[in-house]
Structures are given as structure tokens and as C-alpha cells.
Simulated assay, not measured.
Amino acid sequence: MTTKPRLYYFNGRGRMETIRWLLATAGVEFEEAEYLETREQYEKLLQDGALLFQQVPMVEIDEMKLVQTRAILNYIAGKHNLYGKDIKERALIDMYVEGTMDLNEMIMLYPFSSPEEKEKNFALMIQRATNRYFPVYEKVLKDHGQDFLVGNQLSRADVQVQEDSSLFVSLISNLPTIKKFLQPGSQRRTEPDDRIVETVNKVFFLWIFRFVD
């Protein structure tokens, strides 16, 4: 009997949300094994040797305990035919994905900005999204006239752009697996709120940049 992937992270989006989206797109059921809410939970994972680099997210899948977000995403995408047909397509997918990762980094860290920095960071985030990142994906689709970014088939690049923008809402959101994931009561997480920020700071003693990757 196949065991569902087990996810270890905070009860929020962060770096785990892209993993949730990719699993959902692949039609893979998963479970939130443990939400980190205390420093003690985090230290127990360390003591158990579950966090190779002392970082989350961590996903138990196929008898492995995977850490490092990109490694987890690459494994899931490769396993479920969401990573291109050859090395050239994978290179293109990686290139587009790294753009979404850059943008997602800004979105993810925005709630942790100081009050005086929030307005400036929000403006920069919007400026980068509308002038640097979104136009690239629009141009790629326009130039090759296909529905998806690479190889005219769904890949992790499409999924990650969908997570961070509304570019592909009408197309990707109608996929049965994504449609199910967007329904109320699913395992999808929303943007971080004050409670999540407080929890992250409590667990990591404000060392967020060192321990969350």
C-alpha cells in the first residue's frame, strides 16, 4: 500500500505551498504530518535527524525524508511527468521556475517586513512582478502560441507561475486536480497572517533566514 507524502512545516504558505500545489496538480494525496508551532517540535525533528540541514520544509515521500525546496519539487515533478521530455525542456523549465522563485521569495518575506519597510517592499514587489517577471511568461506564451510554457504540456513551471500570479487562472484552475485543491476545506494555505509570523519567530527565535529554506 502506497503511503501518502507527509509534510512538515508551519500552518501557512511559505516554501511548502509550492510543494502542496505540485502534489495537488499531480493528483497525489498528501497529509500535513505536523505543524511546527513550538521550538520543542523543531528541536525534536533535529534530534531525530529528520532535518538534514536543520531546515524546513521537510517531506517524507517514497521512504525518504527530503529537505531543500528545489530538491523536493524536482523529485515530485520528475516522478509525475511535470519536468519536460528532455534535458533542453528541463533547462527551460528550471529557468522559468527560478524567476518564480525570485518573485515568491519577495512575496513570502513581505509579511516579516518591519512596519516602516512594508510600504516600500510592497511597491518593489509589485514593480518587479509587473515589469520583470510577468511580462516574460506572457511573451513566451505569445511567441510560441501554445497553452503551456514548455513543450506544449503542463510542467512545474506552469504550476509555479499559477501559484504566484493570475496569468493562468482560466487555464490551469480548470484542471480537475487543481480545481479540487482550490475548493474550501482543501489543504491549500493562504498568505501568512500575524499568527503565522508570531509562530515562525517563536520556533526559530527570529533566525528565520538561517533555518527556513
Rank of each mutant, 00 (worst) to 15 (best):
L124N: 15
V28I: 15
A129D: 07
K44H: 05
I19F: 02
Y110N: 04
D62A: 05
D94V: 10
L82W: 02
V56P: 02
G27S: 08
N74T: 13
R132M: 12
T69P: 02
P57E: 04
E31A: 13
I126D: 12
T130E: 15
M106C: 02
T38F: 13
T38K: 14
K65V: 00
T100K: 03
A71S: 15
V136P: 05
A50T: 05
V67E: 01
Q127D: 15
I126L: 12
M108Q: 03
N121Y: 13
N131Q: 15
Y110R: 01
V56C: 03
I107T: 00
R39S: 12
L103M: 09
M95E: 14
P111Q: 02
M95Y: 09
R15I: 01
Q55V: 08
I87Q: 14
N81M: 06
E40G: 07
F122S: 06
A33D: 14
L23W: 00
G27L: 07
R132E: 15
A77N: 00
E17N: 10
Q41C: 10
A91W: 08
F53D: 06
E119R: 04
F30S: 11
T25L: 08
L124H: 13
E43N: 12
K79Y: 11
L92E: 14
D102A: 00
M108K: 00
V67M: 03
R70F: 02
Q47F: 05
P57H: 04
T25W: 04
A129T: 09
L66E: 00
K118H: 12
A91F: 13
K65N: 02
M58V: 13
R90Y: 10
L22C: 12
Y96V: 09
W21R: 04
M16E: 03
Q127F: 09
H80S: 05
R20W: 09
Y75D: 06
H80W: 07
K65C: 00
E119C: 04
V59A: 06
E89H: 13
L36E: 05
G49C: 08
S114H: 10
Q54V: 02
L23N: 03
E98P: 06
T130S: 15
I72K: 00
L103K: 00
G78L: 13
R70M: 04
N81T: 08
G84I: 02
E32V: 07
V59L: 14
R132S: 14
M125G: 06
K88M: 10
M125E: 08
